Amino acid sequence: MTVDTANLRRVVGASAAAVGVLQTATAVVALRRGRRDYADGVWGPGLAAVALTSAAVGTGDPWRRWALAAATTAWATRLETLMLKRLRGSDEEDERYTEFLEGDGTPTVVAKVFGTQAVAQLLVSAPVQLAAASALPRGRRKWLFPLGIGVMVAGGVVEALADRQKSRFMAEKKKAKDEGREAPEVLDTGLWGLSRHPNYFGDSLVWDGAWLAAAASAPAGWTLPAPVAMSYFLVYATGAKRTEDRMEDRPAYRDYQDRVSFFVPLPKGLG
Results as ranks from 00 to 15, higher is better:
116 T>K: 14
51 A>Q: 05
67 A>M: 04
85 K>G: 14
106 T>W: 01
47 L>S: 00
83 M>C: 11
103 G>V: 04
66 W>G: 01
24 T>H: 02
66 W>A: 00
102 E>N: 11
114 F>A: 12
68 L>Q: 09
24 T>Y: 05
104 D>F: 00
55 A>T: 06
42 V>H: 08
116 T>F: 13
118 A>W: 04
42 V>F: 05
65 R>G: 01
46 G>D: 08
98 T>A: 15
24 T>C: 08
34 G>T: 12
82 L>H: 14
86 R>L: 09
25 A>D: 02
29 V>W: 05
34 G>W: 08
104 D>V: 02
54 S>E: 03
113 V>L: 06
34 G>N: 12
50 V>D: 09
41 G>W: 03
53 T>H: 01
75 W>R: 10
108 T>L: 09
77 T>L: 12
76 A>R: 04
23 Q>R: 07
67 A>E: 00
55 A>N: 06
71 A>D: 06
110 V>M: 09
66 W>S: 02
49 A>C: 04
79 L>G: 09
25 A>L: 15
119 V>P: 13
103 G>M: 00
62 P>C: 04
33 R>T: 14
95 E>A: 05
40 D>N: 11
29 V>E: 05
46 G>K: 03
80 E>R: 12
101 L>S: 13
107 P>Q: 04
71 A>V: 15
58 G>Q: 05
80 E>Q: 13
93 E>A: 04
116 T>H: 11
35 R>G: 12
89 G>C: 08
56 A>M: 06
57 V>R: 00
83 M>L: 15
77 T>G: 15
59 T>W: 00
78 R>A: 10
101 L>A: 12
109 V>G: 05
53 T>M: 02
100 F>Y: 06
91 D>S: 13
112 K>T: 10
24 T>Q: 03
52 L>F: 00
61 D>Q: 07
72 T>W: 01
52 L>Q: 00
89 G>L: 12
54 S>I: 00
73 T>C: 01
68 L>V: 05
64 R>T: 07
46 G>S: 05
85 K>I: 03
121 Q>W: 05
75 W>P: 13
90 S>T: 15
23 Q>L: 08
96 R>K: 09
43 W>I: 15
80 E>H: 11
102 E>S: 14
88 R>C: 03
29 V>C: 02
102 E>K: 14
66 W>D: 02
36 R>C: 09
54 S>Q: 02
109 V>L: 04
93 E>S: 06
112 K>E: 14
103 G>E: 08
106 T>L: 05
82 L>E: 14
71 A>P: 11
62 P>A: 08
99 E>I: 13
28 V>N: 03
